[in-house]
Design a protein around this nucleic acid. Structure first.
Lengths: 338, 338
DNA sequence: GACGGGTATTGCAACGTTGCATTCAACGTA
DNA sequence: TACGTTGAATGCAACGTTGCAATACCCGTC
């Protein structure tokens, strides 16, 4: 079933090397020979053995993508774009789900499965910057979402603080004053939630609105269920928010669901802004205003970083810190508030 | 940076073979030697070279997962579960997005990247059963979603026709008589839409309701935008449906969005059922009734099939046709109609 | 002291491919 | 005729690992 260069060579009456030359198309081969060999290649359905090529060439053509969860729409969309961008560079993507497990993240960073991949894109969740300094078993690493200031690795993300500030400012501009923030994660050393909280507070301060701790709601994870729970807590506590800035779209959608079920009119009684720009947000009832990171550019530039480091490994180029653009897409969930 | 068995052996003053034995832990090694070698292994941060192992062992430890799109929630959730089930078997998943391109699907089936993967799970989209008979370059294949009756490959799916019949019957039981079907794909040879349409028609027939071609709406793709467009067409045409059975949750959510924007009350004016059981459906406004396939079991059994074929390749076990359970989860979008 | 049986360690070969250098033939030119 | 040049085809070696078989060694026993 599986035929090798040797088999083709024997059948075509040439040397292994010549067959290899035909396959690669690089060296000089007489037209007649090439045709004969090609015919045998087709007959036997020859497929080059990747494992052998990898061993010989030292490259696997694989890049790893480590994300918390694939079933999370944001990461699914991102993974899809990474896979596309990788395909354009003739790379294949292997997916690793860390489930936010620090051990899993550490394991991936330390020895990425034994040179299985040529490079690793990781969206760290529970590991803080201080741990990220170690290079991943020799292969280049790109960090997503986490600002690793002292890092040894390239880093691609939106300006989380600025984006959060804009989202909050948008709600303030609509006259809202009791704006809740859903999505604090004080138990994690992950910086993303911190940055978004900073931006939220900055906007409040600039508008002269005093922050209210009762409006800052922590969550365990970032799923719809967590957003729903947080919204319930807000409604049943006495906090009385007139708007919500959720740190992710999933949280926002959970909150929106609870608000709707509780009879609140959105946006009249409660305005709502999310973060991530997932496709669901566009089709929610009402459609959700959200901060949209340029995910395509995140994928593209992360792969570009890897490509650069892979093709010229030794150059002492310092770690890049790439900020990709974002925009606030205003929809019905904040309509008439601006 | 990258150290090999050879380096460790030299430093520890033993043979390459002994180091290999320590790493694998299989053969007999004196405790003292083992400790010394292990120390050097740690010092040098040795990681086995996968490419060499693959070449030697003939296995790569990779399984391919070919799906139309990763950003589609159903496939994202499924991919996540496949990745989990694979991890439990010490396999890693490589993702291939076909974007419904028949050429891409064919390419994957014919030669799956040259023995890069030990097996392939493919969710064929635009390729019909007649083309699926070819085995994928020697590696085992499992088909998802498509009933390949004459296939040479194992097959895992829910009973699409039965599930669709149940969904439609549920709407009929609620007194609906003008039930639209959104999601026909007459231009594709993919069987899934056909089966769901069959089930829909069967339910109507059993209830003595005459099918109305104006209520059977074709779509180009299966995204929210397509569902939204279909719903618009239905509302602006004169069809006047009192319920909608959408062939996927994404279509349903698009339809729901348009219905809400048009001022229709769901479920009073329009009841809605989807298919796929994606997480979004649970948190829609109102929550969407949907057919929930046991996705975990789909992933699990697909991998089980691969594992069986990989570990005992030559056995002439005929292709399996595995039907996994599903259930209709009734939520607010059809509340009070049953 | 020779021998069998077990343990510990090792060398050889092979997995399938490609880079490099070599060989061989043919041809044009001095 | 001799020589350099080019084109075509080949052989050798190596990538890093592991299965197999062989070796070396120690100990207890006859």
């Amino acid at each position: 079933m599986t035929s090798r260069l040797k088999d083709v060579a024997a059948r075509a009456g040439v040397s292994i090397r010549t067959v290899s030359n035909v396959v690669s198309g690089s060296a000089n081969v007489a037209e007649e020979t090439r045709a004969r060999v090609q015919r045998v290649l087709d007959e036997l359905g020859y497929r080059p053995n990747q494992a052998a090529r990898n061993l010989r060439g030292g490259r696997t053509g694989l890049v790893g993508l480590a994300i918390p969860e694939l079933h999370s729409p944001y990461f699914a969309e991102l993974a899809g774009l990474v896979a596309e961008a990788a395909a354009q560079r003739s790379w294949t993507v292997v997916i690793d789900q860390t489930h936010g497990d620090p051990d899993a993240e550490r394991r991936l960073l330390e020895g990425t499965g034994g040179r299985l991949v040529d490079g690793l894109i990781i969206s760290p969740w529970s590991i803080g910057p201080e741990e990220l300094t170690a290079c991943a078993g020799g292969v280049p690493v790109v960090l997503l979402g986490e600002r690793a200031t002292h890092g040894l690795a390239d880093h691609v993300a939106v300006d989380n603080a600025l984006a959060a500030e804009e989202a909050t400012a948008h709600l303030l501009a609509g006259g809202r004053r009791r704006i809740a923030a859903i999505g604090l994660q004080p138990h994690l050393s992950n910086g993303t939630a911190h940055h978004r909280l900073d931006g939220y507070r900055t906007a409040l301060r600039k508008a002269g609105v005093a922050p209210d701790p009762a409006l800052e709601v922590p969550v365990r994870a970032l799923h719809r269920a967590d957003g729903a729970r947080a919204m319930s807590d807000l409604l049943h506590g006495g906090a009385r928010p007139d708007a919500v800035f959720a740190f992710t779209d999933e949280l926002a959608l959970g909150a929106l669901h609870v608000a709707g079920a509780a009879g609140l009119r959105v946006p009249q009684d409660l305005a709502l802004v999310g973060f991530d720009g997932i496709e669901d947000a566009r089709y929610a009832n009402p459609a959700l205003t959200t901060v949209v990171p340029d995910k395509r550019q995140i994928a593209e530039r992360a792969l570009q970083c890897l490509a650069d480091r892979i093709h010229s490994p030794a150059t002492g180029v310092p770690p890049l810190d790439i900020v990709v653009p974002h925009c606030l897409e205003v929809r019905a969930s904040t309509a008439g508030t601006d």
